[in-house]
Amino acid sequence: MIQVQAVQPEKTTESSVVFSVRDLNVYYGEFRAVRDASFDINENEITAFIGPSGCGKTTVLRCLNRMNDFIETARVEGKIEYHGVDLYDPQVNSNEVRRRIGMVFQKPNPFPKSIFDNVAYGAKLSGRFSKSEIDEVVENALRQAALWDEVKDRLKASALGLSGGQQQRLCIARCIAVKPDVILMDEPCSALDPIATARIEDLMQEIKKDFSIIIVTHNMQQAARVSDRTAFFTTEINPESDRRTGVLVEVDSTRKIFSMPSDERTELYVTGRFG
């Protein structure tokens, strides 16, 4: 269900803001991939990042749980605050960050292990659960990911035997089992058929009461269906170097972005006349 929300990012009360991003610039070597992005992400909402290819939406998403740390040439400038804490403070442990800010990837990537071990892995590593609690954590995560009934009789079977859609729900369960606060989803349905996609979208609505979700999607209908708020990114071509840089055009309630966006570029994109 899409909530009508006309509140500007600046007006949201502090407790409900999960991420506060200011003047975010991301470079890969000399190349600036994202320029001056500023936005807020609210708690228990689904925020969609949309925009054409190369607009930096995935790059921005990966900055939010420091997944870009693994790209040697990547450099992040600006400020990303997570519940008021600077994520890029040298004191911050990036593994702890990723434990609280989980991620679901474009291609379902279960470990080549059993279904049970896949879900239990992160939870075991976190050290927050005793051995006897793990079984319960796994069951709850699989139930929340709407996969329990399909796999409860074959928890010891390899995860690679599941269908693509089941694998992606398993990846969501694996993420949920760590009990994160935010779930980042990078085009989670782009490798799935429409039925599997619909199941994931239903699932997102189910779990958003427990998590804040950010989803990158190429599919505008998907953004319109699932998200409460939408951020539109686009590319700008630098006339000197002829290279593209991603810019954030606007963030607003999904209804507003798709009906009466403030920026002309957004309107061109969502009406299908560009991109």
Partner: peptide
Amino acid sequence: PTGIREAGYGVGATRWEVTRDH
């Protein structure tokens, strides 16, 4: 595959944990 490493990092595993377990 990169996907396996990312999956490990995604649930908060350290570099060594990802290397050892996956």
